[in-house]
Structures are given as structure tokens and as C-alpha cells.
């Protein structure tokens, strides 16, 4: 398998309290150096709680935010969005909020035509044919094309968003919480559609979500993000059943599951560390039951633990 997407020490810091001239007062590290590879045809799930940097990471991959350090390789070529048309044909993005990602003052047809016109320079007849094809693929009716975004429900709007991403004919899709704004019955429709499209068009997905069960259901591999860094990565079947990192275990134990009695998995009422004043060592140490002096001083690196599984922990759990 070849790599569709390769991230090498990618990081992002945001300046805080920047004066007009001169350096900013603080920097917040939204994403600490992350190295990941997404194989062609794979779905890599990324989970993490709010503020863990998963959206920042995704937006860097499509050039909406420039990275602070590191490099991105897309299908073997270095990241280059100097030519927006060539770039847009290689990677696309599906947004979290389906309604706000559609311009309220344009019809669906106008929205759908832009990528075909700008990225593929198609003429009018070709565009109409291609839009019909794509709409058939995402189970939308052609008569939706002359309506405006506010006339659609969340699930329909999200399918339009997916259709727009497909129109670019990119082989890699970044899905940023594509179903978290949807109801469960509609969520399943969209997830199944995504699975079908992947099979049909041979797509590669980077699937970002805060919902562990959803990520597990759609992904081949899953990376768990905490405080801007990957703390564990492994195969979807294994990572929540046999977590090695205590944070992954905490996440898995916190998810409400039918038939499991209610207990707070954390005794302590703990919170994320302060991003303006990050602790030295492991960011999870303050919440971790296994933390030792070592954890508070040196930051653990991702190390191979068992088959296909890596975790960044000084005191990993037994598998």
C-alpha cells in the first residue's frame, strides 16, 4: 500500500495577545508535532475531546491554516496549494455544520457547479451531467438543485456537502465531524453512504469525530488525540477493547453504554491543562491514576506496543 497522506512533525501554534509589531506575548500550541500516515484506501479515525486540536489538524491538511512546523505529503508529493485547482483535485473537506457550509444566497446548483467549473473547467452540458451522476450517488433528487440551502434538513444538507466534495473528484476526503450535527437515525444514513462511496470510488478518508462508537464503526485505524498530540494509535477493533494509554481507557470507560452501571470513571474532578501554561512532561499526568514522577518531568514518545499499536505512555496498561 502507498501512503495517501503523510504528516511529518506537523504542528501549529497560535499567537495570543499579539501587538501590532513585535512578537506575541504567548503562543498556544494547538497541535504539537504530529507524524501520521494514512494509507491509500484506508479510513483513519481521529478522536479526541473538544480543544484537543483535531479540527486544527484537519484544516492544516487542506491548507485552510498554514502549519507552524512540519511537512505534509499528499500522494507522494509535497503539499502545494499554490495552484488551487490542482490542489483541490487531490484533497477535499467535508464540514461539520452542513448548513453553514453552504452559502445561503446561492442555489444548490450554483454551489455544485463551482468545483466543476474551477477545478475541472467543464462546460455547461458536462457539468449538468456530472452533477446528476453525483446526486444519484448520494441519493439526492435532481429537483433539489434549484432550491436554497435553508430549505434542507441537516441530513440532506450534509449529503449536499459530501456531493460538493465528490464533485472535485479528489481521492482523499477529510471528514470533520460529518455526522455530529445530525440525529442518530439520519447519522446512520450518512455513515452508510460514506462507506458506499468509499467502496465505489476508492476513496481515502480521514474521519474526525468526538464520538468513539461512530469512529470505531467506520475506521480501519484510530488515532487518539489529547492536548494536541497523538497519545495512542492502533487498529479500530483493538484500541478501545485493549487500550494501552490510560487516556484511551478513560475515554472508552466514559462513553455511555447500554447495560453498564453509571460510575464516574474519574474519581478526581479534573480538567484539561491550561494551554497558556502547559505542564512539563505528559499532559495527561494530572488526571492519570498511574502517573509517576517520571511522567511529570519527561514527555513520553509514541512507542510500538504490540501489533499495529503505538502509545505515548511511560506506564502503559497491559494488553
Amino acid at each position: 500500500m502507498s501512503a495517501a497522506l503523510k504528516l511529518d512533525n506537523l504542528s501549529k501554534s497560535f499567537p495570543v495577545g499579539k501587538p501590532l509589531f513585535g512578537p506575541p506575548k504567548f503562543t498556544v500550541k494547538a497541535v504539537r508535532p504530529v507524524s501520521l500516515t494514512v494509507e491509500t484506501g484506508e479510513t483513519l479515525g481521529i478522536v479526541g475531546e473538544s480543544g484537543c486540536g483535531k479540527s486544527t489538524l484537519a484544516r492544516m491538511l487542506v491548507g485552510l491554516i498554514p502549519p507552524t512546523t512540519g511537512r505534509i505529503e499528499i500522494e507522494g508529493r509535497a503539499f502545494d496549494n499554490a495552484d488551487p485547482a490542482a490542489f483541490g483535485r487531490s484533497i477535499q473537506y467535508v464540514f461539520q455544520d452542513p448548513i453553514s457550509s453552504l452559502n445561503p444566497r446561492k442555489t444548490i446548483r450554483q454551489i455544485m457547479e463551482v468545483p466543476l467549473k474551477r477545478l475541472h473547467r467543464m462546460n455547461k452540458a458536462d457539468r449538468a451531467r456530472r452533477i446528476s451522476e453525483i446526486f444519484a450517488a448520494v441519493n439526492l433528487r435532481d429537483d433539489f438543485l434549484n432550491r436554497y440551502p435553508h430549505e434542507f434538513s441537516g441530513g440532506q444538507a450534509q449529503r449536499i456537502g459530501i456531493a460538493r466534495a465528490l464533485a472535485a473528484n479528489a481521492r482523499i476526503l477529510i471528514l470533520d465531524e460529518p455526522v455530529s450535527a445530525l440525529d442518530v437515525s439520519v447519522q446512520a444514513q450518512v455513515l452508510n453512504l460514506l462507506a458506499k462511496l468509499k467502496r465505489e470510488f476508492g476513496l481515502t478518508y480521514l474521519f474526525i469525530s468526538h464520538d468513539l462508537a461512530v469512529v470505531e464503526a467506520v475506521s480501519d485505524r484510530i488515532a487518539v488525540l489529547y492536548f494536541g498530540a497523538v497519545v495512542e494509535i492502533g487498529r479500530a477493533e483493538a484500541i478501545f477493547n485493549r487500550p494501552r494509554h490510560p487516556y484511551t481507557k478513560l475515554l472508552a470507560d466514559s462513553a455511555p453504554v447500554v447495560g453498564r452501571p453509571l460510575t464516574a470513571p474519574e474519581g478526581k474532578e479534573t480538567e484539561l491543562p491550561d494551554p497558556l501554561n502547559p505542564p512539563p512532561g505528559c499532559a495527561f499526568a494530572a488526571r492519570c491514576p498511574r502517573a509517576s514522577e517520571l511522567c511529570r518531568q519527561s514527555e513520553p514518545q509514541l512507542t510500538v506496543m504490540g501489533e499495529y499499536q503505538l502509545a505515548a505512555c511511560h506506564h502503559p496498561l497491559d494488553s
Binding site: 437515525s185 439520519v186 455513515l191 452508510n192 477493533e237 472508552a252 453504554v257 447500554v258
Partner: peptide
């Protein structure tokens, strides 16, 4: 029963999810 089936449960691995066609 269909709504319960739609909810993915942790620990089930990769799978096709049940969906309810149509909209409320």
C-alpha cells in the same frame, strides 16, 4: 427498536449501521 439499532455501540468494531430511511 429501529432507533436503538441506529446507535453504534462501542466495542462492536467496524460495521454497517442500521439506518431508518426517510425523515421524520
Amino acid at each position: 427498536s429501529r432507533l436503538i439499532d441506529c446507535v453504534p455501540e462501542l466495542g462492536g468494531g467496524r460495521r454497517e449501521l442500521a439506518a431508518i430511511p426517510g425523515l421524520p
